[in-house]
Design a binder for these strands. Sequence first.
DNA 1: CGATGCATGTAAGCTGTTACATGATTGC
DNA 2: GCAATCATGTAACAGCTTACATGCATCG
Lengths: 179, 179
Amino acid sequence: MTRRLTELEGVCLALIDKYDRCTAYRVRRELQQAPSSHWRGSAGSVYPMLSRLEVDGFLKSDSDSDDGRGRKTLHVTKAGKAAVNAWIMAGSEIDVISSVTDPLRSRSFFLGVLSDKQRAQYLDASINQLEKYLSETKAHLKDRSAEVDQFEYFGSLGAVKVTQARLEWLKSVRKQLKQ
Amino acid sequence: MTRRLTELEGVCLALIDKYDRCTAYRVRRELQQAPSSHWRGSAGSVYPMLSRLEVDGFLKSDSDSDDGRGRKTLHVTKAGKAAVNAWIMAGSEIDVISSVTDPLRSRSFFLGVLSDKQRAQYLDASINQLEKYLSETKAHLKDRSAEVDQFEYFGSLGAVKVTQARLEWLKSVRKQLKQ
DNA sequence: CGATGCATGTAAGCTGTTACATGATTGC
DNA sequence: GCAATCATGTAACAGCTTACATGCATCG
């Protein structure tokens, strides 16, 4: 049994697998352009992580791919595919499922420390930003719906659904506080 | 202007403030008992973090609180209260709002690599665990509704709403794949 | 031919983890 | 008196961040 992949490793390895082969730079760009800001796609995380995956035999760089400026194309090995498979299947574990944190929710427990004015201001601003974020994820969803892969569509749909739920929740909080 | 608090620091400092004064051990227990498994509440994170907050002047330990076994009660200073306030208000920033990650969603983008059988198995297991997690958060919500603080209720309500959205989304994915 | 972008990588620092260590208290 | 729990803490390590460094390619 091989080691477990971290979330970032899983996403990136699966991504490379999906594209069949790609460069580290493209992986970085995908992370940077994703609607979620959880991962920055920083060089200091991506390159060492990919080296790690190569050392562990999950990734291999195509030998003929050096184009003069040190660019390498990567592809996922058989062991890598198995690791991706295991990473996905581990997603049904309760620890993984319940590991989400929502900074809006964490804060909502302590809104009592704010003055009425500040609280109203905070809620308005949050709802505003959430609406902005929602329209971004919706735009992302529209882009995806034109593509062939239905799974990308499902993923983006999930982002929209959850963002909508967060928004409706915050609005109901604001409403209840106004009374 | 003082430094920004991390999410864990913000939650813990706000928690101590809410309880007026409490021990490090209680902070740990609260983290451990929270429905989200994002923070383990490990000694190796909590004690150094609280020391940090004390060094920075956000926390102070009551001098008369040593009960013979080295237990200390902590309270939040004025500067600490200001830091909590700033931490909450920063929650409306787009970077903070969009920093959520959902391991179920990350994986959904790559469900194409699974066989039909594995995919069905994965979705069934995930939906099962999510339902279990939902009933836990609902129980938590019921507990909170008996308490005086409406903000705790709001927080738990948010957890329920978002979990419901995740569940409905996953069920719709399963349904669409069955056709 | 110089600015911008492509592409890879390293160094130092921060914040979390697990695992271990220590000692007092409480309950049977 | 001994086991479990309360309570605090440290050591080693993992995985991310920012900031820096390097060098080729492309375009005006």
